[in-house]
Design a protein around this nucleic acid. Structure first.
Length: 129
RNA sequence: ACAACAGUUCGUUCUAUCGCUGCUUUACUUAGGUGAGGGAGAGGAAAGUCCGGGCAACAUAGAGCGCCAUACUUCCUAACGGGAAGGUACAUUGAGUAAUUGAUGUAACAGAGAGUGCCACAGAAAAUAACCGCCCCGUUUAAUGCAGGGUAAGGGUGAAAAUGUGAGGUAAGAGCUCACGUUGUAUUAUGGCAACAUAGCACAAGGGUAAACCUUAUGGGUUGAAAGACCAAAUAUACCGGUUGAUAAGGGCUGCUCGUCCAAUGCCGGGGGGUAGGUCGUUAGAGAUUAUUGGCGACAAUAAUAGUAGAUAAAUGAUAGAAGUCCUUUUACAAGGAAACAGAACCCGGCUUACAGAACUGUUGUUUUU
């Protein structure tokens, strides 16, 4: 299942606000991650928000390109999360904020996304216990 | 052939795997949805948001003042501050002894005979000009000097100094007068739709600056798709109906008692506004392409053709490979590298700005060959 549908994107304003106020956070280069666990009814185990600051990338073309790279990396690797926590009521909500000021390789992003997802999985296990 | 300038067109292509957003066909499903197939999916500027228009909501008796914008003429257009053709002025350049003329470019190109303001430095003086000089007169024996006056011909300064040259005239001078010019205004004739041009006649000539205020003429209601229209969970609930309801307290009918009505609580149903969310607006249009006709041209008319993005924390992508183009290295094979500016957001017409490279057309210049 390498889909990436609209339901997997974080679009609800209230959830976004609560994420930025209450969410925990950590940092893996070049991303800063904020995450939270909520009870919700949507189908997928997680919702994601990819954020590229306009301050670092003034041109819309660059922001689009980065967003697509990150999204594709997530799409390929998201099974790490979905296999372990598919049947829980608690849903993952997290945001990736790109902090580097230049565009990096797809391969690097790919590796880092795997690291991030593994870290998130550990956090989830802690809470589950 | 090369270079410069101007204009027009284009803005890498293909394959495989994994995806994204609409559309459509079909199977399953109570519905919601799920699966499979097909086909579509960023630009010449999508950008800046600088003008104009459509569309929408709100406002709106009429007039004046204010504010903003525009400013040679005619035409094009839905409209424009855009475009086309032309006029005028200036600049560059080619031809020519010259008069003149060809080409290209630039122009906030109405008014400085309405008023107010400003004009650095230099200079006597920057706008009711007297520093030097020239001349007259007074004083003095006379000269110098001093006092009073006339004078814009000469001097130097400056971006700019009071209409140029010549003659007359005068104490010296001066458009003071005259001739030939220059510029402006009014007017007549001819040509032109007009701006304007040419010729005549009259009057005037005491600077520049309106992207300083201003005057004149013309135009402008405000806000923008986050406009606006509709549907509508959950929760709370105006209001309505039903049901429940203690013989307690309260209010109306009354002076009092009884009686009766209202109301208080919970539940059920209806119901309005309306939040999350959704649908429409929203992509067939002052459209595009091709041909013909009309027009110097912008453009218009007619006919034919195809159906061509529609997201909403926002799709149009990622990976791998191949081909072509350009650059570097190399005799070559080949190897390495590069590919600009930039991402639709209601829709059109323009303008402005950014842009690797490619192709074509025209003009000018240089060189070579015939």
């Amino acid at each position: 299942m390498l889909n990436f549908r609209k339901e997997e994107r974080l679009t609800n304003k209230k959830i976004i606000n609560s994420l930025f106020i209450k969410g925990s956070s950590f940092f893996i280069y070049p991303f800063s991650i904020k995450w939270n666990i909520i009870t919700a009814t949507f189908k997928f185990p997680s919702q994601i928000l990819i954020s590229i600051p306009k301050r670092n990338f003034k041109k819309a073309v660059d922001r689009n390109k980065l967003k697509r790279l990150v999204r594709d990396a997530y799409r390929i690797n998201k099974s790490i999360l979905s296999e372990s926590i598919s049947d829980s009521d608690k849903k993952f909500v997290f945001t990736l904020i790109y902090t580097e000021k230049e565009i990096v390789d797809f391969k690097l992003i790919h590796e880092k996304i795997i690291l991030i997802l593994q870290r998130l999985l550990k956090e989830h296990e802690k809470i589950a216990k």
